[in-house]
Design a binder for these strands. Structure first.
Length: 206
DNA sequence: GTGTGGATTATCT
DNA sequence: GATAATCCACACC
């Protein structure tokens, strides 16, 4: 594990599309009981604001669940869905203007054994390493991210943060763009090109 | 390789 | 009461 500076407030303080691209290639770090897990982010989705009908904050909806989306850039937003999965987002934009980036997939670099231990016994050994953080629910399971980590400050937390392992954004030609996944209910907003991923990564979902 | 449906429950209407 | 920013197993090709 090479030393790298933690992403600071300025890194997160931008619009969701910019942050979604900026996060690609950066390192997500989780410390639990003194043990470190890490992975390189390879897939993200931008959720833009109250006008974005696919966002939990669509039409200005503000509830206990999505309260974190209204917080300062660099705050975590972790929610529970489909009765069994957690999803991890990084809040961006201005305070009271809900925008966030969903972290959809990553490539494991540290703590693979700890991640495998979270799988059911039957699949613990047979699951390919590239699948451990391939998908937003799998990523949260592998890193043991749940609502205890909702609404924390990623610039100061000692449990979860992002390290800036690359100074500049990945070049555009290396980034694939597509519609977001699983938001068919959002009418024309489901078709907008707001999913970003590294072409060359085997750890991108679908 | 593709496609389909079921799991399972917090959250909101 | 309905829905969900998903995943998995199984059928079939």
């Amino acid at each position: 594990m090479s030393a790298a500076p933690r992403c600071d407030r300025a890194f997160f303080t931008t619009d969701a599309i910019t942050l979604a691209r900026r996060l690609l290639g950066q390192r997500l770090v989780r410390i639990e009981r003194g043990q470190r897990r890490a992975c390189i982010i390879v897939e993200t989705e931008a959720y833009l604001g109250t006008h974005d009908l696919a966002s939990h904050a669509a039409n200005g909806r503000r509830t206990p669940r999505n309260e974190a989306m209204y917080a300062i850039a660099g705050t975590s937003y972790v929610y529970f869905t489909y009765g069994m999965h957690h999803c991890f987002n990084v809040v961006c934009g201005r305070i009271n203007e809900p925008a966030a980036v969903l972290i959809r997939a990553a490539e494991v670099t540290e703590g693979e054994g700890l991640m495998r231990a979270r799988l059911p016994e039957a699949r613990r050994a047979s699951t390919p390493t590239r699948d451990l953080c391939r998908g937003p629910g799998r990523l949260c399971r592998a890193l043991d991210i749940d609502r205890a980590l909702n609404c924390i400050d990623l610039t100061t937390s000692d449990e979860l943060w992002i390290e800036r392992v690359r100074r500049r954004c990945v070049r555009s030609s290396a980034i694939g763009v597509s519609p977001r996944i699983g938001v068919d209910y959002a009418r024309h907003w489901s078709l907008k090109p707001l999913r970003f991923f590294l072409h060359q990564s085997p750890c991108v979902s679908r």
